[in-house]
Amino acid sequence: MDRPDLPLNALRVFEVAMRQGSFTKAATELRVTQAAVSHQIARLEDLLGASLFLRTSQGLIPTDEGRLLFPVLEHGFDAMARVLDRLGGRRDVEVLAVGVNTTFALGWLMPRLDAFREAHPEIDLRISTNNNRVEILREGLDMAIRFGMGGWTGHDAIPLLEAPLSPLCAPEMAARLQHPADLGQMTLLRSYRSAEWPGWFAAAGTPCPPVSGPVFDSSVALAELAAAGAGVALLPVAMFERYIRQGRLAQPFGATVSAGRYYLAWPSDRASTRAMNIFARWLSGAAPAPG
């Protein structure tokens, strides 16, 4: 099979631009100007006779040709880096970038990371946190741990664990709550998932009162506000056991409702690396089996 005569530098610039999702960020990583990145991409598009990006007011959008080319180049450059590291006498360390829902990171993952690093010193695990809104490819990640119902378009995912929701509040407030209906007299702190409180009241067998408390996109922020006495938050109890042990939060009622589970996800068209496979197996073994 004939090998294409394409400039390696232009291919590398394209790979970084795809991973970063912007010419500006690619220029920063490559330590060149944005104009140089744009020039190399234009040169590669001319040689290929195909557009690799659509330039829009919302940023770069990869074309079908760009999406087809990227995973091949990414895998190739990763393989070359591993071989060059060995030839240079350095340890064969593989970088793995994982985006993690902040609640899961603080409530489950971080206390277990030392065990992973001790078991797999050959993997340089780099964690970045988010509030469940993450674009793996655009943010230069390999994988992401996110909460929901699964079925994300263009992604493969494995279920990790469920985290049923229940009301949590400051212990002093919990002492005044005798029945779920008493919550109607309290400020109910809300996440951006509007169906959660109605779902919990249905599970508790009590009509849902009007819910008009402030809305937040972070369970950690909700927990901090609830611990400070600002209201009652509907939270994944398993992720805030530390708050309960410390006496900062209390669970006044046993009823719970499921709004999804935590998943490990990655782009379907991305070839799995050894580090990705190891991390996925470790997570699956460390997390309780999904029910």
Rank of each mutant, 00 (worst) to 15 (best):
M1R: 03
P4M: 05
L6W: 10
M18D: 04
S22L: 05
F23K: 10
F23N: 03
T24K: 15
T24H: 14
K25G: 07
V32K: 10
V37H: 10
H39N: 11
I41G: 02
E45T: 00
A50H: 06
S51G: 05
L54V: 09
I61G: 00
T63K: 09
D64S: 13
R67P: 09
L68E: 12
L69R: 11
L69S: 07
L73C: 05
E74M: 02
E74H: 14
R82L: 07
R91A: 10
V98S: 08
F116M: 04
R117G: 00
L125W: 00
L125F: 03
E135Q: 13
W152I: 09
D156S: 14
I158Q: 08
P159L: 02
P159T: 01
L160V: 06
E162N: 03
A163H: 07
S166A: 15
P167Y: 14
P171L: 08
P171I: 04
P171R: 10
E172M: 07
A175D: 13
L177S: 11
A181P: 01
D182C: 01
L189M: 06
S194P: 04
S194L: 12
A195W: 15
W197F: 04
W197M: 00
G199A: 07
W200F: 05
F201D: 07
P210L: 09
V211Y: 06
V211R: 04
P214W: 01
V215Y: 07
V215A: 06
F216L: 15
D217Y: 05
S219H: 15
V220D: 07
A223N: 09
A226F: 02
A226P: 01
M239V: 00
M239R: 03
E241P: 02
E241D: 13
Q246A: 13
G254S: 15
Y263P: 09
Y263N: 12
W266M: 10
D269K: 01
A271Y: 11
M276W: 11
N277A: 12
I278R: 06
S284H: 06
S284K: 09
S284Y: 02
G285D: 14
A286W: 08
P288K: 04
P290F: 03
